[in-house]
Computed example of a mutant assay.
Amino acid sequence: MSAHMPSDRSFQLLEVVPGRMESSPAVGRRRWPDETKARIVEETLAPNANVSAIARRYGMAPSQVFGWRRKAIANGQVGRREAPTGDGEAVGGVIEVVIAGATLRVGHEVGEAHLRRVLRAVRSA
């Protein structure tokens, strides 16, 4: 169904002004200072921390906090924290990784940096 056309076939001039849509928030993107981001990320790395609850407390989407946290961990700015055990020692266990037919068994005492070097060596071999 076509729109109604005026009988005099006149043109209408429309003025378009770029701006925000009516349904979008009146406030633009927030700019978080690096210190604030770091503090929020550190808070989420605590054992048993609820990232979604922390994000709600700061009035932001949990996906934003997860993104900040992922970048901070990837850049080596922060490290993951392990939940403390009752006796003060790390939880035991072995992780088994199979790469190109080679099996690598890693205990909890192996540091992340050392494990990365070993994985790189196995992959390049």
Rank of each mutant, 00 (worst) to 15 (best):
V78K: 05
V51F: 11
A72C: 10
Q12M: 04
I40M: 11
A72E: 06
R57V: 02
A55T: 06
H114D: 15
E109S: 04
A46K: 13
E89R: 09
I73H: 03
I73Q: 08
A74R: 06
G67F: 00
F11D: 06
E43V: 03
N48D: 13
R105H: 01
A121P: 03
V78Q: 14
R70F: 00
A74Q: 11
I73K: 12
A102G: 04
G67D: 04
S23C: 12
S7T: 11
L104M: 13
L13T: 12
V106T: 15
H108A: 13
N48I: 00
Q64N: 12
A83M: 04
R56F: 05
Q12V: 09
V98Y: 07
W32K: 02
E22P: 12
M21S: 13
P18Q: 08
N75C: 02
E89H: 05
A74D: 10
M1W: 01
P47K: 12
V97Y: 00
L119E: 07
A74G: 07
R39K: 08
S2A: 15
V97D: 07
G88H: 11
I73G: 08
V110R: 08
H108K: 02
R105L: 07
A72L: 05
R29S: 01
T44V: 15
S7V: 13
F66M: 03
I40G: 04
G92I: 10
G92H: 12
